[in-house]
Computed example of a mutant assay.
Amino acid sequence: MDLLSLLDINNTLVNIPIGGGYAMSWVEGFGTIFGLLCIWFASQEKTINYVFGLLNVTLFAVIFFQIQLYGLLLLQLFFFCANIYGWYAWTKPNSSGETLEVRWLSQSKLLAISGGSIAAIALLTIYIDPFFFSLATIAVDGMNLFGAELAEPVLAPDAFPFWDSTMTVLSIVAQILMTRKYVENWMLWIVINIISIGIYATQGVFAMSVQYSILMFIAANGAREWARTAKENINNKQVEKAIA
């Protein structure tokens, strides 16, 4: 089997007997596995998570291209860049020779991010159709510059504007918080996964609901692990300060 065949969404890897049955392609299967590995290694604070994250967003970009969700395809570019930045931020030592530590957001940052997220969700809920249409148009025009010869996208109403807006905004915020090693990123991923489970179950895509259920438990474990690490980091700093 050649690479192009593996990347074809019509090339079935396995038929999952859930609901009415779900044919998972090779590209979705590998993308899902890489996504699970990314989240698991991130929950363990392992930098290798970004390798799997880059593979995950790349394969899902291929999927979104084939099913003509060009707005989501363009968002994968953001997540690709965020993974590269996170890899850099997690490994680059500061002026004291120390790398980034797991920590909690300060109260002021938490309030600012919460307020900004609520405002962004409200605005995106109202303008989600033209927003993704604009992203899709930009993506198509960009690819057409390189000879893709794609048809211009058609504006289609979103079935779940509020929930899709919430997942989009929180996913961006959670990804940024993860690159800075803030514990709160896991709380956001838990919320995102719960919403995803509900939406996919409502649409009858039960295999995706199962996938996000697994991701939810990994995120919950990540929250527990990072909260413990953050507490240890605080205690270590207090000891060092007392000694000094």
Rank of each mutant, 00 (worst) to 15 (best):
N11G: 03
V14S: 08
P17D: 04
I18M: 08
G19H: 02
Y22I: 02
A23R: 05
M24L: 12
S25V: 00
W26C: 00
E28N: 06
G31H: 00
G31D: 00
T32E: 00
F34S: 10
N49A: 06
Y50V: 01
V51M: 08
V51Y: 04
L55C: 13
N56R: 08
V57L: 01
F64Q: 07
F65S: 03
Q68T: 12
L74H: 00
L77H: 05
N83S: 09
Y88D: 05
W90C: 08
W90S: 03
G97C: 01
E98N: 14
E98G: 00
E98F: 02
T99Y: 01
L100M: 07
R103L: 01
W104M: 04
Q107S: 14
K109R: 13
I113G: 02
A119D: 05
I121W: 03
I121H: 06
I126H: 13
D129E: 10
F132W: 04
F133E: 08
A136F: 14
A139F: 05
A139I: 02
G142S: 06
G142T: 03
N144Q: 07
L145W: 09
L145S: 09
L145Q: 14
L150W: 07
A151W: 10
V154K: 11
L155P: 09
L155W: 12
A156F: 14
A156K: 15
D158W: 12
T166I: 06
T166W: 12
M167E: 13
V173A: 11
Q175P: 03
R180H: 15
R180C: 04
E184N: 01
E184F: 02
E184H: 04
N185D: 03
L188P: 07
I190K: 05
I190M: 09
I190C: 10
V191T: 11
V191I: 15
I195H: 07
S196F: 11
S196E: 11
S196R: 08
I197W: 11
G198T: 09
G198W: 01
T202E: 10
Q203I: 03
V205L: 11
M208W: 12
S209T: 03
Y212S: 02
S213W: 05
I214L: 13
I214T: 12
I214C: 07
L215H: 03
M216W: 11
M216R: 07
A220M: 12
N221M: 12
R224G: 08
A227T: 10
R228K: 14
R228I: 14
T229Y: 09
A230E: 13
A230M: 08
E232P: 10
N233G: 14
I234D: 15
I234H: 15
N236M: 15
V239T: 12
V239Q: 13
E240I: 06
E240S: 15
A242G: 09
A242M: 13
I243R: 10
A244Y: 14
